[in-house]
Amino acid sequence: MTNNKIILKINNIKTSFKIEGGFYEAVDGVSINVYENEVLAIVGESGCGKSALAYSIMGLHERSKTMVEGDLLFKGQNINDLTESSLNKIRGKEIGMIFQDPLAALNPLMKAGHQIEEVLILHTNMTKNQRYKKVISLLDEVGIPSPDTVYQQYPHELSGGMRQRVIIAIAIACAPSLLIADEPTTALDATIQGQIIELLENLKLSKDAGVLLITHDLGVVAEIADRVAVMYAGELVEIADVKTLFKTPQHPYTRSLLNSVPSVSDLQSQLHVIQGKVPPIQHLPRKGCRFKERIPWIRDEAHESHPELHEVARNHYVRCTCYKDFYFQNVTPREEKPNVYTSST
């Protein structure tokens, strides 16, 4: 993995949103590299700052209400301080993005084919005829059975899976070297999820591109990710390659997440629930271990006062020292389940 070229070097990125006059960090000092020919998954609950990170990379945040500090070195060039127009030369051409809700991300009044063609108009000098052929071959590449028909169809005439394929076709049209997939399977049902994942995996292999996959679906992660970064409350709490992470998770948050995945085979067992919820960004604990309040049974001394990433094994990083003392508390009995919610408030 480390032999590969770095495509995107995320260096101490802080994204803060303006809320009622003050700025609050949704992403707080994230540093990680995305390599060529690799799928890096970022996982975490809703509200952990995953999407905020993706939007920061794409420069999609509204500049008047958001502050993005830090460096985003894309092939050595810092894209964080680029102007809108120079960023437009990179977006779509070198970095592609796949959105969560394929219906919302497509313009309802434009034919699917024309939406793909749009990228080619913006970034290539192809003639109309060449573009048409390219669009058809792209539609074919993303596994759409009748490209000519779909070319002429509007988004509402396509099924969910087809729409997501069109989105992917748009994202890969210019063969970008970085693909950001923001929860690409969340809005789809299970069988189509499988197909889309397979498609993403094949695309990565054929194009040498780095993929930044943002998801909360650990199944998806296990399926296609090479490396996983676990994000909690704006910080990366654990980074490891996918096998290590699933076999020997260290950080309490990672372990709780893995523990709370429902299992189909084991119908008897209780579903593990992580106590409480991710605090809203105005109330994030700014010092100490951010996960502390959700594992109150762990003694205070186990946490670091300024938690840092520790390399516990080769290329396996864990934040804070609380992982050493962590154990799961007894499973909450079913009758008392509502208590999980009351105790969090």
Binding site: L158, I192, Q195, E198
Partner: peptide, 19 residues
């Protein structure tokens, strides 16, 4: 070239005529 199989008929093009 990528070769994705279409296991699901559900995913085939829905060809509804739009007005």
């Amino acid at each position: 070239m990528v070769n994705v199989q279409h296991k699901n008929l559900d995913d085939q093009a829905i060809t509804s005529e739009s007005t």
